Computed example of a mutant assay.
Amino acid sequence: MKQDYIKILFEQYLEGKTNQEEEKILLDYLADPANGDSEFHAVMDKAWKKQNHQADYTPEANQGLNQIWNKIEERKPKSRSLYPILKYAAAIVVVISAAFGWYAYKKAQEPIQAAIAFLSKTTQKGEKVKLILPDSSIVYLGAGSKLTWPSHFVKGKLRNIRLEGEAFFEVKHDTSSPFIVHSGQMQTRVLGTSFNIYAYPKDGTFSVAVRTGKVKVSENREGKLKQLSLLTPGMKLLYHLKAHDYTVRNERITEVNAWIKNSFAFKDVALPNMFKSLERYYNVHFELKTNKFDHCRFNATFTNKSIGNIMEEIRVMSGKKMKYKIDTANKTITVWGEGCQ
């Protein structure tokens, strides 16, 4: 009868229903060398399962419970000197009981986290927009680009956004919340600075150029992050998608975000790639009738010029060997000729 009473008392203790006097009876019983502890496993297990609405059932928690059972089994009495062992078992009971209460308290205190919505903006060819992010950072989004960002940033957490295309960033300084731009396999991390990212997947080369501050550029391949370079003002990193390699060169500060003011700078750029950029900037389509221009590379800057004026300048740079025709109605430019001089 006493043992049945103790089992009931034990279960009530785990449920937090015992008073001080009952707890003393229970712990005195557990500390008595004449009593074992294994018979209470079923009661312990039952009490644990009753907490399924508030207990932590992660693998770590289950592993911890199993370790407790194992320790009790390992210390099963082999002699009459049982007092310290049973004292240990009683302590385990107190710990587990306290844990049940802690799980309930922890769950009750957890705030309900609303799912963070993500916003995105996609620009068309010939379009560029200015965006203000939730942290007051400013983004100038280039033509034919897409930016994705969370509806709000959490203080002390990473400010992660995603870019496909080109954008110039003026990042609000916050040392506790690094600002990270993900663009394909390239990752750019800053605290507060201004920089330009060019990341059109079809172009084969991504770039990061810094106007102010410092940025860290890394490569993310199959979930493994590898730092490529730290860039300071006037430095530009070019990352080649197929080869997975990169180069770093100097860039004029004034050219980093020149496209915002309709000034387009090309430095040692192949003519077909130049045409790809001009397609986006001017919302036109190029039709190349020959591949003789594939290896033609140019250095050029065009500021506030019409596409007609730009094409004429390129024709002159080619030694007048390139020929073109502009179809204004269809926004198409046909190019042919003998290649470069």
Rank of each mutant, 00 (worst) to 15 (best):
Tyr5Glu: 15
Leu9Asn: 01
Glu11Trp: 00
Gly16Lys: 05
Thr18Gly: 09
Glu21Gly: 03
Glu22Met: 05
Lys24His: 13
Lys24Glu: 12
Ala31Ile: 13
Phe40Leu: 14
Ala42Glu: 12
Trp48Pro: 04
Asn62Trp: 01
Gly64Lys: 12
Asn66Thr: 09
Gln67Phe: 07
Ile68Cys: 07
Trp69Gly: 02
Glu73Pro: 08
Lys78Glu: 14
Ser79His: 11
Ser81Lys: 05
Tyr83Asp: 12
Tyr88Ser: 08
Ala98Glu: 11
Phe100Ala: 13
Ala108Gln: 06
Thr122Ile: 12
Gly126Phe: 05
Lys130Cys: 04
Lys130Asp: 07
Ile132Tyr: 12
Ser136Cys: 11
Val139Phe: 01
Gly144Met: 01
Trp149Pro: 00
Gly156Gln: 06
Arg162Ala: 15
Gly165Lys: 00
Glu170Gly: 11
Pro178Met: 10
Phe179Asp: 07
Val181Cys: 01
Val181Met: 04
Gly184Ala: 08
Gln187Lys: 12
Thr188Ala: 09
Leu191Phe: 04
Gly192Tyr: 07
Thr193Lys: 01
Ser194Pro: 04
Ile197Thr: 06
Tyr198Ile: 10
Pro201Thr: 01
Thr205Ser: 03
Thr205Leu: 08
Phe206Gly: 06
Val208Asp: 00
Ala209Thr: 07
Thr212Ile: 08
Lys216Tyr: 00
Leu230Ala: 04
Leu231Thr: 03
His240Ile: 14
Val248Phe: 05
Asn250Ser: 14
Asn257Ile: 02
Asn257Pro: 00
Trp259Ala: 09
Asp268Ile: 03
Asn273Leu: 10
Phe275Glu: 03
Glu279Trp: 03
Arg280Pro: 00
Leu288Pro: 04
Gly308Tyr: 01
Met311Trp: 01
Met311Gly: 00
Ile314Lys: 10
Met317Leu: 14
Met317Thr: 00
Gly319Ile: 10
Lys320Phe: 12
Tyr324Asp: 09
Thr328Asp: 13
Thr328Val: 13
Thr334Asp: 07
Thr334Tyr: 10
Trp336Gly: 10
Gln341Gly: 11
